[in-house]
Amino acid sequence: MSDSLPATPHSIISDHPVDRTMLDRTVLQPSLDVQGTTMGGETVLLDLSTGRYYTLNQLGSVIWEHCTGHSTISDIHAVLCDRFDVAPERALDDLVALVNHLIQEGLLQQERR
C-alpha cells in the first residue's frame, strides 16, 4: 500500500525558473508572506519573512496585478501585447525575466495546472 498523498489538480513548483514550454499551464501567485500595495501606478511589495521591500515600476505593477493565481503566464503576455506598444517577443522575454527575478527573491510562487 502506498503512503503517497492524493493527487491534486495543481502542483506548486519551488523556486525553479519558469519553464518556457509550459507558459499556458503556469499560473503565478504572491508568496504567503508578501504584501503588495499599488499607488500611482507603482507597487510596493513587503516580504514579511525577510523584512525586505521592493518596488515595481508601472509595467511591473501591471504584471503583478495579474499574479493572483488565476492568469497563466500566456494570459499575462496577451494582456501586455494588447495594452502596450511592444513586440510580442520582447514582451515575453521581459515578462519571463521579471517573473524569474520575483521567484528568485521569494516573492512569487508558480503553480502548474
Binding site: L45, R52, Y53, Y54, T55, L56, N57, Q58, L59, G60, V62, I63, L80, R83, F84, D85, V86, R90, A91, D94, L95, L98, H101, L102, E105
Partner: peptide, 17 residues
C-alpha cells in the same frame, strides 16, 4: 479604428534595504 496603445517600458523590480 486602430486602438491606441500605451508606451511600453521594461518592467523593473528594485530591492531595497
Amino acid at each position: 479604428m486602430e486602438q491606441k496603445k500605451e508606451q511600453y517600458v521594461q518592467p523593473v523590480v528594485v530591492k531595497h534595504e
